[in-house]
Amino acid sequence: MSETVVEIVNWLASEAFKSDPSILHPALKQVAAAKGASKIWYGLQHEDQSTVFVVIVWASLADHKLFIDDKAPYAELLAKLTPTLDASAGAIEFYHVAFKPNPIPEAHFNCPINEFGILTLKEGKTNAEIEELVWNPEFNDGGKVFDIGKIIERDNQYVLTKGWESVEAHHAARAYRSEQLSQFVTAAREIITPAVCHVKLTMFKS
């Protein structure tokens, strides 16, 4: 089993970041140089045009923990991030996802727009119920439809990611669901409550 995890980070963007997203690059360059860090994407949420998303692939959760525990460089990273944060923003939120079937859903992240869905188990529902549904290889065909992973830090939440040509294409697709997909969505909504947003991700190249 792969130890690869995908870290998803978000925070409320400053006006400076909205005007010039490249002010985030010094921080991303530092992360990219860390042991175990590989691919990085970043972008702004489509719906509110205010929430920054950063997606970082780590070879293992242990590699990211070592990076955080190195106090002086980590403090330097936080200082580099400060200009990108809205003054009223709360804490930076981050969590790690173990995606399946593709540990790195690169094909989705590289699409013009990416759908992120936080899937929260309904009361009384179990991890086994949702995992049996979403990781069914007969339906998802190796992650071509979407990739889903459990949030490591949260027992009751998963992340779905799917690439689209546009937000409009996603909305239009809802009207043309196959019978199989409609059955899947109906079954999933019996188990989870979804919260969906879209992000235009750009791969960071240091």
Results as ranks from 00 to 15, higher is better:
G43E: 12
L133I: 10
H46I: 10
F204N: 11
H171Y: 10
A107P: 07
I130W: 07
N136I: 09
R154S: 12
A107Y: 12
A13R: 02
M1W: 10
Y158I: 07
A33S: 15
S182Q: 12
W58M: 03
A37V: 08
R154K: 12
C111D: 14
I191K: 05
P83F: 01
A16F: 11
K80I: 03
V31I: 13
T186V: 12
Y176F: 09
E179D: 00
L181D: 11
K122I: 12
S182H: 06
A33T: 14
I92M: 11
Q49D: 15
H198K: 08
V9P: 05
A16C: 11
T202G: 09
P194Q: 05
H108K: 00
F17I: 08
K65T: 05
W11E: 13
S206D: 13
E76D: 12
D63P: 03
Y42L: 01
Y95K: 05
I152V: 15
Y158Q: 00
V167N: 04
H96W: 14
T82D: 09
A98P: 04
N127K: 08
E132V: 06
A107N: 14
G124F: 13
K144Y: 09
F17C: 06
A79Q: 07
S38E: 15
N110S: 14
S60W: 05
Q157W: 11
A75H: 03
E7H: 03
G90F: 02
T161S: 07
K65P: 02
G36I: 15
L81K: 01
P137S: 04
A72T: 14
W135C: 05
E93V: 05
E3K: 12
S50I: 10
S178E: 02
A172F: 10
V5L: 09
K144W: 07
E115Q: 07
R177S: 10
D147G: 04
K71H: 00
K80V: 02
Q45F: 03
D70P: 01
N114R: 01
L133H: 02
F53Q: 02
F204M: 12
A172R: 09
F17W: 15
D155S: 11
L12D: 08
L28V: 13
F53K: 03
E47D: 07
G124S: 03
S60T: 13
H25L: 14
A72K: 14
G163M: 09
S38I: 10
L85H: 03
A195S: 14
D63R: 02
K35N: 14
N127Y: 05
K144E: 15
Q180I: 11
R174F: 13
A91E: 10
K162L: 09
H171N: 10
A107H: 10
S14R: 03
L201Y: 12
A62H: 04
I148E: 02
L66V: 01
A173E: 09
C197A: 08
T193I: 13
S166T: 15
Y74Q: 03
W41R: 09
H64G: 01
F146Q: 04
N156Q: 06
W58G: 01
H108Y: 04
I113L: 00
L44E: 06
Y158F: 15
K65G: 00
L201T: 11
F139H: 06
A172H: 07
K29F: 13
S166F: 15
S178C: 05
G143P: 07
A37R: 06
T51V: 05
E131R: 01
S88L: 10
H171D: 10
G142N: 13
K144V: 15
N156G: 07
D63V: 03
E132I: 02
S38T: 12
I191N: 06
C197W: 13
